[in-house]
Design a protein around this nucleic acid. Sequence first.
DNA 1: GTGGCTGCAAAGCTTTTGCATGTTC
DNA 2: GAACATGCAAAAGCTTTGCAGCCAC
Lengths: 152, 152
Amino acid sequence: MIDMVSARKKMELFPSACRGAGLKVTPQRVAVYGMLLKTDSHPSAEEVYHVIRAAIPSISLGTVYKILDTLHNQGFLRRVATSRQTARYDARVEPHHHTLCEQCGKIQDVDVALEPELVHLEKSTEDFRVKIPEVVFHGTCGDCAQPAPVVH
Amino acid sequence: MIDMVSARKKMELFPSACRGAGLKVTPQRVAVYGMLLKTDSHPSAEEVYHVIRAAIPSISLGTVYKILDTLHNQGFLRRVATSRQTARYDARVEPHHHTLCEQCGKIQDVDVALEPELVHLEKSTEDFRVKIPEVVFHGTCGDCAQPAPVVH
DNA sequence: GTGGCTGCAAAGCTTTTGCATGTTC
DNA sequence: GAACATGCAAAAGCTTTGCAGCCAC
């Protein structure tokens, strides 16, 4: 479920945040960031590309990759940890966690704070600076758990 | 740090565990599994391939991929969650967690139980069957945190 | 002997790179 | 106008697939 208030705020701040980071405000960047703010499906680069093409038909997949990389490096986006080949993106940079369906790859948000344990864990990892602690719940989603339909 | 006692036990049980799962016991499989038991570096398929080649020069990369896939499907291996393209493997299937260096990709084990919180988290995710809860600590490892050496 | 496994090569998917052109500031 | 971003195409990286021959059981 998306927090539209927070999403709108981020969208409003985006242009000045870009300029503050030395990035130019292009329609492509705005569209990619806006799209990621409006979804909770943690799309891949390819999925972002297909959605953006509806609004900006001239955009290229390579540009989408470059934008995702730039926004990730600047901290506008998170790359969700998965055990698959394809990168998945998330504009919610606030601490939260994910379920990952090993069958279909679906990623869902898990909004549970992990404070007391986290402090403990961070202390235990000397020689490593933790930026984002993320719990990945590997498993099977509701759709994939259902018995396969009988084919006659 | 590797628990050699546990690793030796697993190696001894491997042949019968394979047969029990309907898998044949081939030198290639034994070598791949044995190699992963002896390391805590969470190697990629390519890295496994290079090590195994020293013992079995005829092995091919495709075979390594197939073996890793088979052993993962049968629960002998975990695929570690990362935010990179390359899959990383772990023969320690018992619950434990990882640090992930966003710079160099290094993965290290974090051995802290997460029991009380986990129960809480599992309850909170209806419609999803959790198999493995894994904490990924995204951040920067000691080597990458060091200031770049001055070049004259 | 049979079914499954290996080795090889080709193909597929995801991502990166280089460069000319276009756009933001 | 300068610096940066885009679009395009080629290439690189990782993984899967198909098939003939081989091996474990």
